[in-house]
Design a protein around this nucleic acid. Structure first.
Lengths: 106, 106
DNA sequence: TCGATATATCACTTGATCTGTATATACGCT
DNA sequence: AGCGTATATACAGATCAAGTGATATATCGA
C-alpha cells in the first residue's frame, strides 16, 4: 500500500483531518468515526502507520497518534506538475494558502 | 469511483502524465503502457473519463484523449490544509513551481 | 461490400480491501 | 493476582477492482 492508496479511503482522510487539528489517542478517533467499529479504525491506523502518514507513541494504556504530513509531499510533488493547467486565479488562492503559516499547535 | 481512487492506480497516473505532455489517441497510450493489454488500458481510460479527469473526442477511427487537470483541484484543495506542516523551504519550491506558468502546448 | 485498423465492452478469474465478531495483548489500579 | 480499560490482531465473509481473452462496434480505404 502506498500513500496514494492510503488517502483514497475516505475514513483515512478523516483520520488525517482529525490529526491535523491535534494529536489524539486512538479511542478519540474511534469516537469520531462512529460509523466504524473500534477494530476497523485500528486497522486504518495500522495502514496509516505503515505508509508513514502517522506516528504512534504510547502513553499509559493509550496510544497517541500524531500526523506526519510530510509524507503527503509525495502527492504534492506529483500534482504540482498539473498546476499550470489550472485557471490562474486559483494559483493566487493557493499562494495565499501556502503563505498562511500558522504554527501547528504543539 | 472518485478522483482520489482514480489517481491511486499507478497506471492511471501514468496516463495522466502522458496526457499532460499532449493529447494522444488511445492507441498511443496503449503503446506506452506496454505492460498492459489494450482492454486494460481502455478500462482505465473509461474510469478516468467517468471521474472527469480526461475528455475524449473522436477523430476518424481514433479517439483522442485530453487532460482535464482541473478535476485535480479536489485533491489540491484537500491537501492544501496540510501545507503548513511542511518544512518552510519546500513552500518556496512550491511557490516557484506554482509561478512557473509555461503555456500548455496547444 | 470487404478487410484492416482502432477502440470499447463482455464474461470470467483472481486477488485485495474493508468490515464485523471474537479474541488477544498490554497497562493501570486496587 | 485480578479486574477494567485501551488497543491490536485473527478470522471469515462480502464486495470490488483489475487483469485477460474473446468479441462487438465503428471507421477507413480499396
Amino acid at each position: 500500500m502506498d500513500v496514494f492508496e492510503a488517502i483514497a479511503e475516505p475514513s483515512r482522510r478523516e483520520v488525517l483531518d482529525l490529526l491535523a487539528e491535534r494529536e489524539r489517542p486512538a479511542g478519540e478517533l474511534v469516537e469520531h468515526l462512529h460509523r466504524l467499529t473500534q477494530p476497523a479504525v485500528s486497522r486504518h491506523l495500522r495502514i496509516l502507520r505503515e505508509v508513514g502518514l502517522v506516528d504512534v507513541r504510547p502513553e499509559g494504556q493509550k496510544r497517541i497518534y500524531t500526523l506526519r504530513a510530510n509524507r503527503l509531499l509525495e502527492i504534492e510533488t506529483w500534482i504540482s506538475r498539473y498546476r499550470k493547467y489550472w485557471p490562474r486565479h486559483l494559483d493566487a488562492l493557493e499562494s495565499h494558502l501556502s503563505n498562511n503559516h500558522e504554527e501547528p499547535t504543539r
